Amino acid sequence: MPSRRAFLAGILAAASVSRASWADVGDPGYLSAARATDGTYRLCGLTPDGHLVFSLPLPGRGHAAAAHPHYPQAVAFARRPGTFADVIDCGTGVHTARLAAPPGRHFYGHGTFSADGGRLYTTENDLETLEGRIGIWDAGSGYARIGDMPSGGVGPHDLRRLPGSDALVVANGGIATHPDSGRAKLNLPTMRANLTYLDDRGAVLDQIELPEAQRLNSIRHLSIRPDGFVAAAMQWQGAETIYPPLLLLHRLGDGAPQLLEAPWEIQRGLRGYAGSVSFSGNGAEIAITSPRGGAIHRFDGESGGFLGAVAAADVCGLGPAPGGFVASTGGGDILTVAGRSVTRTRHDALQWDNHLVSLT
């Protein structure tokens, strides 16, 4: 829990940012964690065409961030299994509060705000039961911890809010882990991922599981179109000689999910791993990235048909751009993909981490 000093700082910060907006800090389109070539870690704001707006220090390696929907404030999460997340005023670079995971918990590196920005929700692991939990934090009171609720499964990784509501979508990856065992997967014989929809009090609105043949596909990362259409990127935990679909589509209340894949000879190049997922800026396409496969796969947002692959070494971060997508690589590149055009913005001093967080 935050100290009294951090608590008071958070209240003061909330009051100060209430007069500011994201436009006041350069109107970034995305947030991304990065490692600088001097060995330090940063949280960066980027324009839609990949130029740097700000670069703020982090105390360690970051994974993803949650952007406040109204104020230039970000919550930067440590890489799983991290136990802290820092609240940062993106105008001043001041760390105004620190979230500490409760005893016996760790964060999974993702979070999201309620529609009014009053609450932050975080994905967490209960180290005693290995069940997933969603932490609840009061953003208006220095990010004080005010409760939690079940995630609906094991290994909740990403979570997003359904547009126009405070309902949450949770990617329960299904993999039980414990820091004492490193990154060992403790339950593969019984693993079962799911996509769970929760209301803001934790009631399950809908829940879907994958077919038995896809049981070892871990549902990891999410993108949601403004009309509520959900896309999820998956990571295969089964035999390396199997190349399953890695993109899932679903809409609340629609029953079984739709699974998308490229033709076999292209699909196998992803090596069973999708790192990020995003709808295009106009919602007409969906794409996934694979750092292991060095590729971006694009699909039609209505028919689900495969539209083609873009080669990009160590590509992982992905977000919507006005004409298509923006992607980031561990080598420092920001790629803008629109139709058959791919443009590159190079950042020699930065190595981008896993995700681009869209502010749109």
Rank of each mutant, 00 (worst) to 15 (best):
R201H: 13
P72L: 04
D49S: 13
V342T: 15
R160H: 12
Y41E: 14
N125W: 02
G269C: 01
S21Y: 00
V17R: 03
G91H: 06
P211S: 10
G93C: 06
T289L: 01
L198W: 05
R268M: 09
A184M: 12
L159Y: 04
L260D: 10
V357A: 06
G29D: 09
A184R: 14
R119F: 13
G39V: 04
G93A: 09
T345A: 12
R201D: 13
A33S: 15
G304N: 04
L120A: 11
E124M: 14
S18T: 11
N194E: 07
L99D: 14
N187M: 05
G82Y: 11
D27F: 01
A6H: 07
V94Y: 09
P257W: 03
A193S: 15
A167M: 13
F84V: 14
I146A: 07
R251I: 05
R340E: 14
A100H: 14
L318A: 07
V25Y: 04
P263G: 06
F279N: 05
L188I: 08
T241Y: 10
G294I: 02
D116L: 02
L58C: 11
S223R: 04
G164Y: 10
P226D: 15
V17S: 01
V154C: 09
V75W: 03
L31V: 10
E285L: 15
E124T: 13
L186T: 14
G153C: 04
N217T: 05
E265N: 09
A100L: 11
T241P: 01
P103D: 15
L350D: 03
G39D: 12
G39S: 04
I88Q: 07
L270H: 04
H221I: 11
S290W: 04
A274M: 02
T177F: 00
L198K: 10
P69Y: 02
R5I: 13
T190L: 05
S16L: 04
A193R: 02
R298W: 01
S341K: 10
